[in-house]
Nucleic acid binder design. Sequence first.
DNA 1: TCAAAAGTGTTTTAAATACACCCATGT
DNA 2: ACATGGGTGTATTTAAAACACTTTTGA
Lengths: 227, 227
Amino acid sequence: MITSAPIELAVSTVIFALRPGDDSGRRTVWLPLVRRIREPQQGKWALPGGPLEPAQELSESAAFTLNETTGLSPSYLEQLYAFGNVGRSPGNRVVSIIYWALVREEEAAEAVVTENVRWFPADDLPELAFDHAEIVEYALGRLRGKLEYSNLGHAFVGELFTLSALREVYEAVLDKRIDPANFRRQVETSGLVRATEQVQTGGRHRPARLYRFTAAATQLASQSASI
Amino acid sequence: MITSAPIELAVSTVIFALRPGDDSGRRTVWLPLVRRIREPQQGKWALPGGPLEPAQELSESAAFTLNETTGLSPSYLEQLYAFGNVGRSPGNRVVSIIYWALVREEEAAEAVVTENVRWFPADDLPELAFDHAEIVEYALGRLRGKLEYSNLGHAFVGELFTLSALREVYEAVLDKRIDPANFRRQVETSGLVRATEQVQTGGRHRPARLYRFTAAATQLASQSASI
DNA sequence: TCAAAAGTGTTTTAAATACACCCATGT
DNA sequence: ACATGGGTGTATTTAAAACACTTTTGA
């Protein structure tokens, strides 16, 4: 009787954060990778992840890996796609269920950085293990696409934020300039945001009003997370 | 040493076709289900599917199941989502990677109908096994959503089609009336469609010009299948 | 000749975009 | 005072939607 090796089931996560780029003062998209410390593909950089535990929910597994890698909790977490091509891992058959997550950079920022965990700019990645380069590309597409038709910016700013800060999130992710006046109107008429009484001073210009997301917005974000 | 049972990996498919409804002459969305012939949930209707074979691609598994169930080949096939909640199958842990497919009804139509395979209207399903009701709901949302921002109608019509036929696909899936004049303009300016020299006669009205999809359209459909 | 869908033209409505200009603060 | 981003007003462009009307066939 022939018994082939069982199919392995893993969960990995593409973790995005906005960080100051090397060049201008503008922030860009970064993601953490881990260096593989065993064969196959030893030494190459890969997405954080691991085998699924029988008693563990898929999203729990993704969030656990994320916390292990960055020390952070995700402000957004959604399943991306199941990658399972026969040839994607030489020698064994691995089906990887990929999640993607957004984290707020402010919180811990440089917290966890070891020899084998490092953050990279999304547009300047090293050679990745397996099909992980393809996966990251796919996740970036989803991030950009979703930002345009949902209120995903929510996940990148804090509880209180200026409209400029929110706009900068969009500019960083979509990598294009957005007219501040039109952006303001779109956001304000969306009903997903409410002005507070507070303002943010400190800039050498007129203080900016602080906003917060409405309940509708947070709800919408978690809904769209499953659609 | 405690060794828990391994996680099972299955692939199932939500198969959509347009069929004449019971009432009016208009077509509606139908899907085939199979009756479970063993425990758990014996006797309940479920999505067609089965365990993933180690040497089989995910999409191959979905297409194989589809052909087995309907005798048809999919004109569109795309991964939907991986459902893997711990409690979704009592007793064992099953992660199901779900695909969704569109088939052209004309081809075989009533071909495969047995005691344990039956087509149901999407808006009038029997009680389903496991979390399959939730899965079908999710797939319907994706079908409707995708039809609005891509040229998915492509998969439901033949090579040559009238703009009315294409419009009826949209009306059936979205379950709403669409202005023929505006629909015509939108489709014509999209560049995804090209008029042929032929017309379709036979109706008691002016003959309708036949169209075909351009290469761009078919390409776009298969692209969007992986995004 | 009449019904019915094919197909064209035009108006209305709404949204995105572009851009001029005033406001309030730190230096 | 003046540079800078915050914030308002308005014109332009584009697309969606609504709807009147003409065309061509089968019966």
